[in-house]
């Protein structure tokens, strides 16, 4: 076997690929499922917290700031390990999937809250005054006048942050979630061959290249608004 053959045998081995393709496909769908649940819950959480904070109820504000600070300062992997390995000792046991979903939702919620908040604050005071002068309530002004404008500004940073956080689903492999990376490394150690890693890489490219390109498009599409 020459070097090239050996390289193909190790990285693009058709027998190994055929055998482990189904498990990588499973991992692909699990990653998608996990990512979608994180995106929906995390952005909703961030939006709700930002809205609560705009009501300016000081003690609650401080709690939200504390939460957002902690979750932005701590590495997600530390939280995942803490939730997965440590919480059972106080009687709280969650599956790896739940732990990763919960952690990344909380992290995305913290970042999204800050981004929405910055967007709301950036809207000119005159918009509030104009709306309130016509009799709209604080909440009506927030929903109908301020948020639609704020969301435009928040789309690019929120998109980028969301993409970065959904990629953290790979951390699930550390706590036994059967997502792409976990399936790929498991298959690699069973087969003693690197081909499953190539399959895993292909799965990530398939999933995230469109997302990254979409993020780039969003950046340019909304660029005019960031002056």
């Amino acid at each position: 076997m020459n070097d090239w053959d050996r390289f193909v045998f190790s990285f693009f081995n058709s027998d190994v690929i055929e055998q482990y393709l189904p498990s990588i496909v499973d991992g692909f769908f699990l990653t998608c499922l996990l990512a979608i649940q994180i995106v929906v819950a995390g952005i909703a959480l961030g939006l709700v917290l930002a809205l609560i904070r705009s009501l300016k109820f000081t003690p609650v504000d401080l709690l939200i700031v504390l939460y957002a600070d902690l979750l932005r300062a701590l590495p997600p992997l530390v939280l995942i390990i803490l939730f997965y390995f440590a919480l059972p000792s106080v009687g709280i046991s969650m599956s790896g999937f739940t732990v990763v979903w919960l952690t990344l939702t909380l992290v995305l919620g913290a970042f999204a809250e800050e981004i929405f908040r910055a967007g709301i604050v950036s809207i000119d005071k005159g918009q509030w005054q104009a709306a309130r002068s016509t009799g709209l309530t604080h909440i009506q002004t927030l929903i109908s006048v301020v948020l639609p404008q704020a969301i435009r500004i928040t789309v690019p940073p929120l998109t980028n942050r969301t993409i970065a956080i959904t990629k953290n689903t790979a951390l699930g492999s550390v706590v036994g979630v059967g997502e792409i990376l976990n399936q790929a490394t498991t298959a690699q150690s069973f087969s003693g061959n690197a081909s499953p890693l190539m399959l895993g890489a292909a799965a990530y490219l398939l999933l995230f290249i469109p997302v990254v390109v979409f993020g780039r498009w969003i950046e340019t599409r909304f660029a005019w608004k960031r002056q």
């Binding site: 990285f11 990376l181 490394t185 690699q188 690197a194 890693l197 890489a201």
Partner: peptide, 23 residues
């Protein structure tokens, strides 16, 4: 840029750590 941004960093790390020895 787009290629390497598509990979979660942990994936890059594992692949380098576990994959390169095969080469």
């Amino acid at each position: 840029v787009d290629f390497f941004r598509a990979f979660p960093p942990l994936v890059l790390l594992i692949f380098i750590h576990a994959g390169l020895p095969f080469a």
